[in-house]
Nucleic acid binder design. Structure first.
Lengths: 229, 229
DNA sequence: GCAAAAGTGTTACCGGTACACCCATGT
DNA sequence: ACATGGGTGTACCGGTAACACTTTTGC
């Protein structure tokens, strides 16, 4: 019994993935946006996306798109939500699955990104976007915030070595608020996930701040609760 | 410029929705499952599903499927996650979006359900299921638990009038644990969402327990935190 | 010495938890 | 009267938030 025989009376649809690509730079959470490369709405700012192929899962489609656009292949990725209003794309009936990705701005392939005309936008000053991409971003940000409040993100957004102040600033950027420095520090120390190194950052401060790194064996029992849910 | 001209070089896919239908009865959280009606794996237990049509969103496809299978048209519904492994369905390449629904077991069309051969299964004693449906269920349950810990579910699962004990038992069933009765009661009272009626349930107890109902204007500011996230 | 960032300590308060206790009523 | 579930009160404990304070170093 072939596929055609079984399901052939049902309609088929174009299926896309759209990636909300988060990065962190200059005390700001940023998003990588692209000028759309084809009609309709060619040239308008857009999330990077692509169509799902026959032999790949949506996760893999998103990874492939990211590989092609930022030149990285080990990327933290999370499914966000499906978008399927019949008229969401004026170019045709396309169902899209939104993903969010976390990447290190300093690690991605800048040349590749430049060639596409892409640009890192601060999350607080986004341009107008096509279709339902703004909605995708706002839900993706909520998801990132939830993850960050439970899990200690940073591994995906900061350099291998980082100071607690850098982590603190990252969290301020993610939640758009000022966490108390002392309390934040204590909270972080209470979960046993970071390892102090003997190195110090002497650029950002006079006294110097110890660099930390993530422990190899992540202890997933210890959950943070940076903000109340 | 027609749809064909723009996107025609990309593949199309079958797109389905599968519904995790939660109900509550006899102190247990239950799931409505169906014997699959066609090959492959005909007769095996399965979530109720259906294919997305050209002119409907996935949400509407799920609502249509629910309408056709339990005979209700105002149903609480939430998207769970997309499933797209190329080989997840041996009958063909089908991407599926899982949804969960909350319905009142006493309100649905029992005759319609019986005709389909469907059965309400306690969440603790599920049969083997086809494809990745067990995964869909476990994620849907997590989502339901999260919603219930933040929002006070009950409107969708209990009768219009209910006692605090009934709500307590519902929460015990959802979280598979025993909440302290006194503390549960206080927590519920602290969020201003229920209205005490003058009626009493005199069947379940000798003293009698007041019936409550949900207030018209839900105060979404007041969030519960039944369990820590 | 002073400014500036790193890092520690202190305290008051709030909310969760455990559990004891009283209440109303049918038998 | 007593068993049963409904409903209330209390006391302890731990986490959180606000904020004062100390440390180190470059200028």
């Amino acid at each position: 019994m072939t596929e055609e025989k079984i399901y052939s009376k049902f309609p088929k649809h174009y299926l896309a993935v759209d990636c909300v690509i988060f990065g962190y730079e200059d005390y700001e959470l940023k998003l990588l946006l692209y000028p759309r490369g084809f009609e309709p709405l060619i040239g308008k700012w857009s999330l990077m996306g692509g169509f799902v192929q026959d032999d790949e899962s949506m996760d893999n489609a998103a990874l492939r798109v990211l590989q092609q656009t930022v030149g990285l292949n080990k990327i933290y990725l999370e499914q966000v939500q499906g978008f399927s209003e019949p008229d969401r794309d004026p170019g045709g009936r396309v169902i899209s699955m939104a993903y969010y990705a976390l990447i290190r701005i300093d690690q991605h392939d800048k040349e590749l990104v430049r060639k596409h005309g892409a640009h890192w936008w601060p999350i607080t000053k986004l341009p107008q976007l096509i279709f339902d991409h703004e909605k995708m971003i706002s839900i993706a940000l909520e998801r990132l915030q939830r993850k960050a409040s439970l899990e200690l993100v940073g591994k995906e957004l900061l350099p291998d070595l980082f100071t607690l102040t850098m982590l603190h600033n990252l969290y301020n950027a993610i939640f758009q608020k000022q966490f108390d420095a002392g309390n934040f520090r204590k909270k972080i120390s209470s979960v046993d996930m970071l390892e102090q190194t003997s190195l110090k950052d002497t650029i950002g401060s006079k006294r110097g701040a110890y660099y930390y790194k993530f422990k190899k064996s992540q202890n997933h029992e210890n959950v943070l609760r940076i903000v109340k849910q």
